[in-house]
């Protein structure tokens, strides 16, 4: 039983990281109707930003965290402006290939600057390990869960209650109609990239603190997993990305504990295949009727 609860908690923690990344995929897909495959690499840049600001510049952790978030948000907007905006009316395949190109570009920039050696993410704070009734819980795990929960509630309120959040939903439904309301579609897309990338920065902090070692390809695997989580939950759906991320983390962690570490990824993707066969729009995805 202890083992089970322990696995549940670490699964939730891993799932929270996936969910934070998946939100970026799903928001960008919902609004710009594109898969931003460079999104995973934004996490890697965020992690390096943490390393440089704390280790090399010696800034206090809080400042370093804020800087990582700002750097990722600006990077997200920059990627959108330079790489995707010129392709707004291009075929979606061109945009997809560009996104893959941006992903490799970011990885190689990091390789050029930081080298291929992995670097250790700084200890931002010393977290005690709690022992509750025989269950060992890491302080980082608790922080990850708490902050992710707060972010998800804040994001849900933002999307449903604020003017900009509602405008984002309007743009994701119908760009031309939204522009007839006086909503700037370009500005809304830029904001979406900024928010998605800021969430990736949070993911990079938790990822760095949990897994410590960072290299230029660090973002690739969590990026693919989070993309899977977004599809799993129903791409374009914000609650879907949250649910998909958490479930994916749980499935992965339980597979590792009870079945096999080697088989964990195969099981994760196997579950995805089954879900998509049964419900092609994902768990919370809406039936999309393509209007001609």
């Amino acid at each position: 039983m202890l083992h089970f609860i322990q696995t549940l908690i670490s699964g939730l923690s891993l799932g929270s990281i996936y969910a934070l990344i998946a939100l970026g995929y799903t928001m960008v897909y919902g609004i710009a109707k594109m898969l931003n495959f460079a999104h995973g690499d934004v996490i890697m840049i965020g992690a390096y930003a943490g390393i440089v600001t704390v280790m090399s510049l010696g800034l206090p952790p809080v400042i370093a965290i804020i800087l990582s978030i700002v750097i990722c948000a600006v990077l997200g907007m920059l990627i959108e402006f330079l790489a995707y905006k010129p392709l707004r009316s291009a075929p979606s395949l061109s945009v997809l290939i560009t996104a893959i190109g941006v992903s490799y570009f970011l990885q190689n920039i990091a390789l050029l600057i930081f080298g291929s050696q992995q670097r250790a993410y700084p200890t931002i704070a010393d977290f005690p390990t709690y022992n509750i009734g025989g269950i060992q819980i890491d302080g980082i795990t608790i922080l990850t869960l708490a902050v992710t929960a707060v972010i998800m509630i804040a994001l849900t309120l933002f999307i449903n209650k604020t003017k900009l959040g509602k405008a984002m939903r309007a743009v994701s439904e119908d760009k031309a109609a939204a522009s007839l309301m006086g909503i700037s579609v370009n500005r809304t897309i830029t904001m979406t990239f900024a928010i998605g990338s800021a969430l990736a920065a949070f993911a990079s902090i938790f990822y760095g603190m949990t897994y410590v070692y960072i290299k230029p390809t660090t973002g690739a695997m969590p990026g693919i997993k989070a993309f899977t989580a977004a599809v799993f939950g129903g791409i374009g759906s914000i609650p879907g990305a949250m649910l998909g991320g958490i479930l994916l983390g749980l499935i992965e962690q339980f597979s590792k504990t009870y079945i096999s570490t080697l088989w964990a990824d195969a099981i994760v993707f196997g579950v995805l295949v089954v879900v998509l066969v049964v419900k092609p729009t994902g768990l919370l995805g809406k039936q999309m009727s393509e209007k001609v």
Partner: peptide, 16 residues
Amino acid sequence: FLQMTVEENLEMGAYT
């Protein structure tokens, strides 16, 4: 906006 409420649609009309 089919997935938004009636009132949210009206609010979008008042975006400016």
